[in-house]
Nucleic acid binder design. Sequence first.
DNA 1: TCCAATCGGGACTGAATTGGTCCCCTATCG
DNA 2: CGATAGGGGACCAATTCAGTCCCGATTGGA
Lengths: 164, 164
Amino acid sequence: MFRINKLTDYAVVLLVDMARSDRVRAAHQIAADTGVPVPTVAKVMKALVRSGLVRSTRGAAGGYLLARPAERIAVADMIQALEGPIALTACVEDADETCDRETFCPMAGHWNRVNAAVRRALEGITLADMAAEPASPHWSTTAPASRAAGGGEAGERRVSMASS
Amino acid sequence: MFRINKLTDYAVVLLVDMARSDRVRAAHQIAADTGVPVPTVAKVMKALVRSGLVRSTRGAAGGYLLARPAERIAVADMIQALEGPIALTACVEDADETCDRETFCPMAGHWNRVNAAVRRALEGITLADMAAEPASPHWSTTAPASRAAGGGEAGERRVSMASS
DNA sequence: TCCAATCGGGACTGAATTGGTCCCCTATCG
DNA sequence: CGATAGGGGACCAATTCAGTCCCGATTGGA
Ligand code: SF4
Ligand code: SF4
């Protein structure tokens, strides 16, 4: 059903929680704070640390903290942290697998384009956006009629240009 | 790894093949023509017919044919045909499941936004685009640096505005 | 100097999903 | 009427996923 992994989902939940209160907190604390079971939090955090989205401190009084401001963490980053490179199919450029059909498949590299479009969409939304308090209950799913409106909206875009 | 179903992949392959030669062809013929195993083709076609992307003719000399011009079939349609509504998470508006955490989840409806962005990207590419002969090998996957470039590109857009 | 608190890496298992195959019924053409 | 197609759905093997657990490494503080 074109679903992201549940673990990835949790990752985002945790990240959002971290973005809202940037204090160093231990895994079990974050767990208690979000309702996500402890072992799962631990597992997710490991992945997040490994991919550099979260900074960890070991030893007593240790814990986790976002590695960079929420505005600079895109949804794409979170997904990639948990699921590896975004690759809709095996024949897409940066997939680490290959399809045996790849040589004579009638659609050559056309998936790359789709893949790129999706990734771009995912790069346009940041953790900051996800962590924002409701406010405008505006993002209905049912096409906002803006489709093909020629407008400048590009798969969402926002503060993300807070360059380094 | 944020992968679409293999069956969905096949669906697109078959659709592309159909788009290129719009003759009524039987499943086994399409199979032979694309290299996809017959039973799989059959299965995929059923789904495509059920969701109205493909028209079928039964009886001898029967077969399949695109239900509408390739320009009016978006990648999103193909995915939805095989995998049901596009719903990145269970809490997204048009998911047919629900997450028990949904009530007190810190991120309320924020996934809707991501979901919408992805869907929009997927709606902006049509079967015609996928079926096009190579020509411009231009859609590299490695981020086009355009991120936050304020440009007008919106997850691809094209002929798709051929309204209903 | 130790102890207790934390993270890090990875193995392991049960459950769920997916991919692929098959069978039988219905429809249509010649 | 018979051969050729599709339609619906059951079915099973294989893979993937989610969730848990364990043990070693690190560090602050008693
Ligand atoms: S090469 Fe063809 S069959 Fe293989 S993953 Fe790409 S599109 Fe799918
Ligand atoms: S409600 Fe929260 S936990 Fe449930 S699917 Fe949505 S984001 Fe994930």
